[in-house]
């Protein structure tokens, strides 16, 4: 057997237009899911630290369930399982966005909780002592500071969620990995195509890291 390692650059380049078609789907699922997940995270993160047990416990349950089960199982459950309950199909894109939203939402809840709890008690006291209501103290004093501290962890979560969308090739969304798999099925150029797929994920995640660094730098004024 004569096996020589050969990386066919032409094959890699040829796959690009095809793979690029997957990127809008990857971005839509990632950022759509993250945007909803962020809202979920704020709501449940704050419920999580509520002094009222009836509010706190559902938040804890949600966080534990969606952090403690794989996102792949979550999306399979939503895509194949839920239709049996609601009696109609769920499209793959919706299932993907929902899975990212619920999964990232659970992690972001914990990020929000940690961020808010990290602000010194004296900040709130100073706000209240000036006559601000509890809501005002949160909005003008605690949240802006907590949010800045949350940015690195949120960036991490963004990168994780972007990569998680690759799992959704199993439900047939035409995202990056799915596009690659289809292309490889006819060209048998797995090495080159998966390399290019990896590069495209890297391009997305590096762009996000860069953008976050800019935001963080601007946000650091006054700290």
């Amino acid at each position: 057997m004569d096996v020589t390692f050969q990386f066919d650059w032409q094959a890699a380049i040829d796959s690009i237009p095809y793979l690029l078609e997957g990127i809008p789907w990857t971005l839509l699922i990632s950022f759509g899911g993250l945007a909803i997940g962020f809202i979920i995270g704020i709501v449940f993160g704050l419920l999580r630290i509520s002094p009222i047990a009836i509010l706190r416990w559902p938040a804890i349950a949600y966080i534990e369930v969606f952090r403690g089960t794989p996102v792949l199982v979550q999306v399979l459950f939503i895509f194949y399982g839920l239709p049996q309950i609601i009696g109609g199909p769920i499209n793959a894109l919706t299932a993907g966005i929902a899975a990212i939203a619920l999964n990232a939402g659970a992690y972001i809840s914990e990020i929000v909780r940690g961020g808010v709890q990290s602000i010194e008690k004296g900040q709130r006291e100073a706000g209240l002592s000036l006559g601000l209501s509890r809501t005002q103290a949160f909005r003008y004093i605690i949240w802006p500071q907590a949010f800045r501290r949350m940015i690195p962890a949120l960036g991490n979560q963004g990168i994780v969620s972007i990569k998680d969308t690759s799992l959704f090739s199993v439900i047939g969304v035409g995202e990056l990995v799915r596009q690659g798999q289809i292309y490889i099925a006819t060209t048998f150029t797995a090495l080159e195509v998966y390399f290019m797929v990896a590069m495209m994920y890297l391009a997305i995640t590096l762009s996000l890291s860069f953008a976050l660094r800019q935001i963080e730098r601007r946000g650091l004024v006054g700290q």
């Binding site: 004296g122 100073a126 706000g127 000036l130 700290q223």
Partner: peptide, 20 residues
Amino acid sequence: QTIRTEVGMVFQQFNLFPHL
């Protein structure tokens, strides 16, 4: 809140708002 509006306080640790 009415009372706090009329009573000012200075703390040992200053507690200025660092983001402002």
